[in-house]
């Protein structure tokens, strides 16, 4: 089943009268259970694409359907709902709330989903345990290492049990060893049934994914199944 369906998508930025087509005619379908890597040089439009898929932004041309929701015509509240329930977004720079501890950070999406305080806490603690942070429940982001912060971010992305997990260079701010551990976590989650899309420019990471989409200048250059997965 197709979870993500992009048809002729374009995103245009205007800077000083000059048009930059950050994305230009993207056609893309991603089915349930896929593990996709998006690669490409810096400035090629990877983040822009992820933001569109993640409902943080809307396209200027074309249509996007996420889990059956037509994003191009959705209201602001509709987009918020999709972000909250259907998608877990993991950022390169973690984007945790600095004054909230681990449990509260993980529980935040549940608060916006209307989950009660008690259940929020229980589920947040369970998720913290799942990403191996049971010892750091009351710590704030500033008291954690980068790898630990990214684990909190992953746990938060899982808070409302979304179908899709997006990662925009989730290992970009980490050393290779910690990065590997985070990547292993994504693979685990994929094995547990999540649809995963991550942006990377590390070919090694791309190599472990099922499918690789190569972007350049806002267009899809190549879209192929990873040799390893074929094997």
């Amino acid at each position: 089943m197709t979870l993500l369906d992009l048809q002729g998508v374009a995103k245009i930025y205007k800077i000083g009268g000059q048009e930059i087509r950050a994305l230009d005619g993207i056609d893309l379908q991603i089915g349930e259970g896929e593990f996709v890597a998006i690669i490409g040089p810096s400035g090629s439009g990877k983040s822009t694409l992820m933001h569109l898929i993640g409902c943080l932004d809307t396209p200027d041309e074309g249509s996007i359907i996420v889990c059956g929701n037509d994003i191009s015509s959705a209201s602001s509240n509709g987009l918020a709902r999709v972000r909250n329930r259907e998608i877990g977004f993991v950022f390169q720079s973690f984007n945790l709330l600095p004054r909230f501890d681990v449990v509260d950070n993980i529980a935040l999406p549940m608060a916006y989903a209307g989950v009660g305080a008690r259940e929020r806490r229980e589920r947040a603690e369970a998720l913290a345990r799942k990403v191996g942070l049971e010892e750091r429940l009351a710590n704030r982001p500033s008291q954690l290492s980068g790898g630990q912060c990214q684990r909190v971010a992953i746990a938060r992305a899982l808070a409302n049990d979304p179908k899709i997990l997006l990662g925009d260079e989730p290992t970009g701010n980490l050393d290779s060893k910690t990065g590997d551990a985070i990547l292993a976590m994504f693979r685990e989650l994929h094995a547990a049934g999540k649809t995963v899309v991550i942006v990377t420019h590390d070919p090694e990471i791309a190599a472990v994914c099922d499918r690789v989409i190569e972007i350049k200048d806002g267009r899809i250059r190549r879209d192929y199944l990873s040799p390893e997965s074929v094997r």
Partner: peptide, 16 residues
Amino acid sequence: VREIGIRRAIGARASD
């Protein structure tokens, strides 16, 4: 601003 962005990204509505 950034905190507000984060909240919006994980599902807060404008009204929230």
